[in-house]
C-alpha cells in the first residue's frame, strides 16, 4: 500500500543520488529505524529518484546518522497528508 500507512507522522528525506539513498537504507537497517524507500513525491520534486520515509520522531537520530556518514541532505519534509508535504529544510 502506498503511501505507507504509518501510525505516527512521517518525514521524507531527499538525498543527492540513489547511492546515498541506499547508504542511508543500510544505516537505518543497522540502527533499527523503521523506514521505507519511496519514489521522490511529485509534490516535492520532479526528479525521478528515490527518497527515504521514516517516522518523524526519529528525526534527530536520522539527522545525526546521515551527518556522521557524510550523507548530505538535499531536502527534509514532513508529510501532512497523502499528497502534501511541508518543508523542514532544503539545501
Amino acid at each position: 500500500m502506498w503511501p505507507p500507512q504509518h501510525h505516527s507522522p512521517t518525514c521524507v528525506v531527499i538525498l543527492f543520488s540513489i547511492h546515498f539513498v541506499l547508504k542511508a537504507e543500510k544505516l537505518f537497517k543497522k540502527q533499527g529505524i523503521s523506514h521505507d524507500v519511496i519514489p521522490v513525491p511529485r509534490e516535492i520534486s520532479s526528479d525521478c529518484g528515490m527518497a527515504v520515509e521514516f517516522p518523524c520522531r526519529e528525526i534527530e537520530k536520522v539527522s545525526e546518522l546521515l551527518a556522521s556518514a557524510d550523507i548530505r541532505i538535499a531536502g527534509l519534509y514532513r508529510r501532512d497528508g497523502r499528497d502534501s508535504f511541508q518543508v523542514i529544510s532544503r539545501s
Binding site: S17, I18, S45, C48, G49
Partner: peptide, 13 residues
C-alpha cells in the same frame, strides 16, 4: 544518471 533529471546539466557529485 537517474538523478537530478529536471536539469540538463551533468550532476557534479
Amino acid at each position: 544518471t537517474g538523478s537530478n533529471s529536471e536539469t540538463e546539466v551533468q550532476p557534479d557529485f
